[in-house]
Amino acid sequence: MTKIAIVLGSTRPGRNGEAVARWVYEAASRREDAQFELVDIGEFDLPLLDEPVPPSMGQYSKDHTRRWAAKVAEFDGYVFVTPEYNHGTSGALKNALDYLYGEWNNKAAGFVGYGSAGGTRAVEQLRLIMSELQIATVRAQVSLSLFTDFENFSTFKPSSHHDQPLATMLDQVISWSQAMKSTRNLESLEQYRS
């Protein structure tokens, strides 16, 4: 079955992202067309990128990198839950993305952003990063406002109008993740032939 990670992209104390990621996970878990797992980058204790060799070489020297790589490699696709800080994604998520390369390749991703402008600028930034990591991004996304979807900017109370965009985004991520499997299988076959 297709495996999708819901990646919690904030490590900030008191982060709003934890409630958002749980909301995404609960909605996704009601589906029967894929398996979902909540992956919190904060649980991997990744320092600022400390690998001496570029990740595209796949020569990881640190235990935390190998553990992170093994987790990321388990999945066919991802839903990134990102805050927006200063018109961009969190430094912690960017750092976690930068640690790896091949484990991300030829997979699909969708986005749930949150912030004063719905996290849309963070998602735009992530789309650029994903293209370099060879991750196909889907069009549908969820944009949550700190003004209307959080009580006192901290207690998550999403409006029901987000349910349909979330379902559409999940549909697209699952579909694209399944389609990308054939690309990964072709690459594996080519490596075997060479």
Rank of each mutant, 00 (worst) to 15 (best):
A69E: 07
L93I: 08
V72L: 12
F111L: 03
R121S: 12
A96E: 10
K71P: 01
V72R: 13
A109F: 03
G91S: 15
G113F: 02
G91N: 11
F75P: 01
K71I: 00
V24N: 14
G14E: 05
A19M: 04
E84F: 14
S116T: 13
Y101Q: 11
Y60Q: 11
Y78F: 15
K71V: 08
G110I: 13
D45M: 11
P55K: 09
N86Y: 05
A73Y: 02
G115Y: 00
H87E: 11
Y114Q: 13
R12V: 04
F44V: 00
V72S: 08
V20D: 12
E103I: 00
K94G: 07
S61K: 12
G110S: 04
L93P: 07
Y114G: 12
A108C: 00
A70W: 06
A122V: 09
G102M: 11
Q35V: 04
L46S: 08
T89A: 11
G102W: 13
D45L: 13
G119T: 02
N106R: 14
V24D: 15
F44E: 00
E103N: 05
W104F: 04
I41P: 02
A69W: 01
G110M: 00
G110Y: 07
D40T: 07
D76E: 15
L46W: 05
E51D: 13
V53H: 15
Y60M: 06
N95D: 10
E103H: 05
L93N: 11
A27M: 01
V39C: 09
Y114W: 10
R12K: 15
D40E: 15
D40C: 10
R12W: 08
F75N: 00
T65A: 09
A109D: 08
A70N: 04
A96H: 12
E43T: 13
S61W: 05
E18M: 04
V20H: 10
V123A: 02
A92M: 14
I41N: 08
L46G: 08
D63N: 02
E26D: 15
G58C: 03
D98I: 05
D63V: 10
E51C: 09
L38E: 01
T120Q: 15
K71H: 04
W104S: 13
A19S: 11
G119Y: 01
L97F: 15
D40S: 15
N16A: 09
S61H: 10
E18H: 11
A70K: 13
G14K: 04
G17D: 04
G17E: 04
D50Q: 06
V20W: 06
E84A: 14
E37G: 00
D40F: 03
P54F: 00
L38R: 08
G88M: 05
H64E: 05
L38Y: 05
T89I: 07
S56E: 15
G91C: 07
A96T: 03
N86H: 15
H64C: 07
F75R: 00
